[in-house]
Amino acid sequence: MSKARSDPLHKSDPIYALFFIIPSVFVIVLIAFWPLAQTFYNSLFKSALMFPQNKIFVGLSNYGALWQDPRFVNDLWNTVRFTGWSVSIETVLGILVALMLNKKFKLRGLVRAAVLVPWAIPTVVSSEMWRWMYNDNYGVINSILMSLHIIKQPIVFLAFPATAMPAIISVDVWKTTPFMILLILAGLQMIPDELYEAARIDGANAWQRFWSVTFPMIRPTIGIALIFRSLDAMRVFDIVFIMTKGAANTETLSVYNQWTLFTRGFITPYFGYGSAMSVMIFLIIGVLAIFYVRMMKIRLD
């Protein structure tokens, strides 16, 4: 470090660096921080989108009101349920499939590409597709279950709380497991073969090799994948909005937030309340991110 500093060639580095960073900082401020600040500002008022002139300053009371709102608390719980289940299933499946795809076999390239297909389909399209597959009259899932005589009557997956949330979680698992596979596979390929060789010489069996070599080596990758997926899952909107619109107790925070900002906040003075909800979702996700990063840092150190 000290050598680089005395080197005249690198003297102007910080100035250049500043020069190069400014545009991206500017863009980030413009597209991320400015809307966030605006939303926070809106959340301090009682106002309707349609009557911006009738704003009443209410301080932070919208935030307190959120926790008195049973629908908000219920939807938070739904969102946590969705995130917990989908992310854990995706992680386990992701590790298993990535391990398989890391072995050498014929047509490996083709299989690796094929695995990515669900991830490549836009969520709106895949949600509509799954909605059809779950259909009670013409859906392929009921048709298979009926022809195998597993069920006598078609199951209306999206109508009841007992089946609707699992049905939605399955769609998310189907769609985003490839993302997990991709990240973990990249992690697996970074592990040098020598480590396995050494483990083999020490007489470690496959199970031991996984827990002592593979898993510690891909733990940081899994950590990053977990952050991405959890943060994504906490603000899930599209799948729920298309498949049930929040019926059958599947409403998540983002779906409620959308309704509050649009339907309710357009005419009645709930726009500030909806903005407070947006900020709260941001804070919840932020806390989660810090928690993950902290956990990772401890591991990395």
Binding site: N135, D136, N137, Y138, Q153, P154, V156, L158, A159, T244, A247
Partner: peptide, 21 residues
């Protein structure tokens, strides 16, 4: 009425009726 009617919109019911079901 099928239990699925609790998830039908206009087009869902039309598909069933138009299919003779």
């Amino acid at each position: 009425s099928p239990v699925g009617v609790t998830t039908y919109q206009e087009e869902d019911s039309r598909h069933i009726f138009q299919n003779g079901d």
